[in-house]
Design a protein around this nucleic acid. Structure first.
Length: 590
RNA sequence: GGGACCGUAGUUCAGUUUUGGUUAGAACGCCGGCCUGUCAAGCCGGAGGUCGCGAGUUCGAGCCUCGUCGGUCCCGCCA
């Protein structure tokens, strides 16, 4: 490289006029006017306009004529003020241009599979195959840079609060509980396997026992489960644990961290304290354990209003122990028959038996169902739901969990369609008072709602064995704009309590010793009370960047089938590698 | 494991229903020419297609049927 850059492509301003400068970057675009060539030179800092004139010499001028998109070049030249009327206000460097005197072509580009533009229309599989090109686009550059700033801010905040960053193993013991493990075969111990961490949960608890009373790590985690827009097989957790703390300590620590991170990276001031909501209230008011509180349209109970209704659908649901709940869809009273039919179909596909729609009009309801309702019921429903003329009331009469889930999902979809979801709004919410256990239909047994190291609420401890499903835990979830950022808890730190919880989960003494013996043993040697949280870094970043998928904040994400399109992973390995590990492949059966 | 949508020049799409029918179009990109103030440069010309793949129906399939592969969203799953 003969010409070394003295400035970046986002740097030059009118104060630099007259300077002799060198720039390096990618040929973003070229505008050839015969005897005059403009080139937009781009790097991650911005774009600067280069001007090639014939005076530069035939060799350089002719070479510049042949530039392709995305050639990499270095140039030297003089910064000049652009003539009056030819400044470009869209560019930070738009007041100036560099008149080129020397050129070095560092790499030529073949024709591109898609253009490097602010927004691309290219399909995601193509973008993933040529990820290095997609990553040149400004939105992804901004997202990757934002990730860096978030990581830096998290480290800076936690470090200045006395937290130590400590790494834990990537090769660990497999535990069948929770998500499916990624397994790593052992060469030294043929037939045995490590697992990649789903989270460093037990290690961080052991670190507490070791006396590192404030720990954090931006931990890479792996879960072999199916993917979603917000779920990748590998992701990062901001993993935090502290000793001698209670829930309030964690809340204020984490709120402080987000306050700092948002201020540092986005310049956004967050409102504190974050609101808190009981788990059961979240379910009944929003139909989900991760409510999006950026808009209203809350689920309202009208069971009492229609308990003795002449309308069979309502009365029947109540008589069979169900509920009648509704949401008010503002301005949807003008929906066509087709639109209302679609809504009803949607409700059915979500699991409801049906959906009752009532148009609010002239102080009452304009609906075929209205004739089954008394004046009092109509007024009651309108008042309870705060429904005004022109609105549409959607009601589900069903078992409580079905009614809430269906209405919660309709609420989200309709808010999106009606454009009622405010952008650039960050609504944090703590979900508290979560149940300790839940019954898994599939496994036919009680499982931990959070994880088995979570402490039950002390006042519920006595019902642990007799009524486990009503025991609340000392866990908490953090929700942002309807997305679960993460969860944590105050942990169990006494071996006998941990054994009781394991026993409720159906583990025998032998099983708990085999799987978690190291933790139970550690608890016997002076374990401090402790608790913490783990937060999904990519989900945080995606919301901050305004992206709908965490793939956009990960440099090299996998597809929905967990495949890496750029380098083709996973791939087969040769027999030698398998032999060394003592592994033989089984033929795929039809 | 299940549901929905998508797959046609390098890219994004139209063409698929009503009607299966000669030579599959457009824009951007690419290549060539003209052009000294553009910044979505402009003008003229050109090249570029196993219609994802495989069967089937048919005289004839981009279009109909079945299967399959890939991508995206969702349910299940994610202590």
């Amino acid at each position: 490289m003969r010409i070394k850059r003295t400035f970046t492509c986002g740097e030059l301003r009118s104060k630099d006029v007259g300077k002799k400068v060198s720039l390096s970057g990618w040929v973003h675009s070229k505008r050839l006017h015969g005897g005059l060539i403009f080139v937009d030179l781009r790097d991650r800092y911005g774009i600067t306009q280069l001007v090639f004139k014939p005076e530069v010499g035939e060799e350089v001028f002719e070479r510049a004529k042949r530039f392709h998109h995305e050639d990499v070049i270095s140039v030297s030249g003089t910064v000049r003020l652009r003539p009056k009327g030819y400044k470009n206000p869209k560019l930070a460097t738009g007041d100036v241009e560099v008149h080129i005197s020397d050129l070095e072509v560092l790499n030529e580009s073949v024709p591109l599979p898609f253009m490097i533009e602010e927004e691309t229309t290219a399909f995601e599989d193509l973008r993933l195959k040529y990820r290095y090109l997609d990553l040149r686009r400004p939105p992804l550059q901004r997202a990757i840079i934002l990730m860096h700033h978030i990581r830096q801010a998290v480290r800076s905040y936690l470090s200045s609060n006395g937290f130590l960053e400590i790494e834990t193993p990537a090769l660990m013991k497999s535990t069948p509980e929770g998500a499916r493990d990624f397994l790593v075969p052992s060469r030294k111990h043929k037939g045995k396997f490590y697992a990649l961490p789903q989270s460093p949960q037990t290690y961080k608890q052991v670190l507490m026992i070791a006396g590192f009373d404030r720990y954090f790590q931006i931990a890479h985690c792996f879960r072999d489960e199916d993917l979603r827009a917000d779920r990748q097989p590998e992701f990062s957790q901001i993993d935090i644990e502290a000793s001698f703390v209670d829930e309030e300590d964690i809340y204020s620590l984490i709120e402080g961290m987000f306050e700092y991170v948002f201020k540092e990276t986005l310049g956004v001031e967050l409102k504190r304290p974050f609101p808190r909501m009981a788990y059961k209230d979240a379910l009944s008011r929003f139909g989900t354990d991760k409510p999006d509180t950026r808009f209203g349209m809350e689920i309202v109970d009208i069971t009492a209003v229609v308990r003795n209704s002449g309308f069979g659908v309502f009365r029947g649901a109540v008589e069979s122990g169900g509920v009648v709940r509704g949401i008010n869809l503002p301005g949807c009273g003008s929906f066509s028959r087709r639109q209302t039919d679609n809504l009803i179909d949607e409700a059915r596909s979500l699991g409801a038996k049906g959906l009752v729609l009532l148009r609010s009009a002239s102080g009452g309801f304009s609906s075929s169902v209205a004739k089954f309702l008394t004046e009092e019921e109509i007024r009651g429903i309108r008042d309870t739901l705060s429904s005004s003329d022109g609105d549409l009331v959607a009601i589900v009469a069903d078992k409580e969990d079905v009614a809430c889930r269906v209405l919660g999902e309709l609420r989200l979809r309709m808010a999106k369609r009606l454009g009622l979801v405010p952008q650039n709004s960050f609504n944090f919410l703590w979900i508290v008072d979560c149940p300790m256990f839940e019954y898994s239909e599939e496994e036919g047994k009680i499982v931990a709602s959070h994880h088995p190291f979570t402490s039950p609420k002390p006042e519920h401890m006595e019902f642990l064995e007799s009524d486990p499903l009503h025991v609340l835990s000392r866990s908490y979830d953090l929700v942002l704009n309807g997305a679960e950022l993460g969860s944590g808890s105050i942990r169990i730190h006494r071996p006998e309590v941990q054994r009781r919880v394991f026993r409720v989960l159906g583990l025998s003494d032998e099983e708990m010793d085999e799987k978690f013996g190291f933790l139970l043993r550690a608890f016997q040697f002076g374990a401090p009370p402790h608790g913490g949280i783990a937060l999904g870094l990519e989900r945080i970043a995606a919301i901050m960047a305004g992206r709908s998928s965490i793939r956009d904040v990960i440099a090299f994400p996998k597809t929905t089938s967990a495949y890496a399109l750029m380098e083709d992973a996973p791939s087969t390995v040769n027999d030698e590698q398998l032999n060394e590990l003592g592994i033989r492949l089984v033929e795929e059966e039809e």
